[in-house]
Design a protein around this nucleic acid. Sequence first.
DNA 1: CGACCGCAGCTTGTATACAAGCACACGCAC
DNA 2: GTGCGTGTGCTTGTATACAAGCTGCGGTCG
Lengths: 232, 232
Amino acid sequence: MAGTNRQTVYATLRRKVLTMELQPGAPVSENELAAALGVSRTPVRESLILLAEEGLIQVFPKVGSFVSRVDPVRVADAQFLREAVELTALDDLPTVLDPALLAALDANLSAQDRPGIDLEEFFALDEEFHHGLLQLSGHGAAWATVSAAKGHLDRARRLGLHEASPPTLNAAQHRAILDAVRTGDLTAARAAMRTHLRAVFDDVERIRAQSPQLFASNDGSTPVRRNVVVWD
Amino acid sequence: MAGTNRQTVYATLRRKVLTMELQPGAPVSENELAAALGVSRTPVRESLILLAEEGLIQVFPKVGSFVSRVDPVRVADAQFLREAVELTALDDLPTVLDPALLAALDANLSAQDRPGIDLEEFFALDEEFHHGLLQLSGHGAAWATVSAAKGHLDRARRLGLHEASPPTLNAAQHRAILDAVRTGDLTAARAAMRTHLRAVFDDVERIRAQSPQLFASNDGSTPVRRNVVVWD
DNA sequence: CGACCGCAGCTTGTATACAAGCACACGCAC
DNA sequence: GTGCGTGTGCTTGTATACAAGCTGCGGTCG
């Protein structure tokens, strides 16, 4: 495992943060990660810098690096950004929709409905679905920006889907959106999209009330080592 | 100048790219930059990685790093993103506006009207104005994402203001937006904002016709060393 | 027993050394 | 003259060495 490059290290760390395998508040030492991944500090450090840029990691010089707590402000930001982009994109839907994209979206929805679907698999399909909707209106490239900005939102959503809302509900909302888009009913599409995104946001608020220790405190003051998550 | 840290290096390089001091297509060697800035490769390299993430730098492993050409696709993306965010934010304007923010925006507009204003100074004021508008509706934090995504747009705009549209026109449009916002005329505010953002986009298209060599070609194929900008 | 001071061990930040690979120029063969 | 092969010099990618600093533990003194 010694020949790993930075992209792999970055992808691995990002996945571990987003899937909560690395819990919010947990310390991440460059040396430890390097040893664990079988590489030197350099690619690990460069990956941490990128993750810090996304807000998923907090670096305190000469002290340590820590997985960011889920920041309600950033969650709200990502939610606003996502809603703005996805709703505005609906305005730019062409009159005739790309049949290939529509077919892919249908297949995606079918996969979402599979009975014993895994949580992470559902998440991947969810990402692909929203990305596909953007592509349908010719703004697929904007997804990269949205995706990068919604790391905090994703972590909060995972908590919500873990403990609360079943994927079935989300899948039904997805189908409602696609149906409205396909029939060209822009008003209904916007309403369905808004309902869906707001439901996601409500899930986040609910899980925040249940597990406040995973979220950042009100003030943005420096949370140092004593702030690591201790479960009991 | 040896005690420079990475943030300074990053800020310096980003400024040089955005102001066209480092022209699109120009090669940027880690060693050269390190020597020029009086630091080692490490902070330079880390800065280049961040700039690559923003799309301002292209890194070709074992070959070289180059300032990205202005990519029309990314320009359009940034334009769409910006329009979506700024227009959607107008929907969330509170009934009573923060007086301090309004005063700051007024002062900003006055500064924009100063006769012999410098181009870069106008750009800073422009950024501050749009950021302030977002703050007015409580979504100031979203500006960071927009700002990071619109590097290509900014470079194109700079070209446009250099050679075409005078800052006076932009300042007038800014004032129209703020007036509509202040009087609570949401429809007029959206219209003024849309007019302004579309005018910016038209400037970009015009300058693209004039100086196509600064823009990326249609295909996204690898532009290597022979593709550096040679002026004549 | 409590407060305070100092050192040990960790952290990140920076500089440097080594590895691997591509592009271009030079020279040779035809 | 033209085409091809080889070598040199550059590039980025990775590993390691050194620098500076904060934290927390332990000893010591009051």
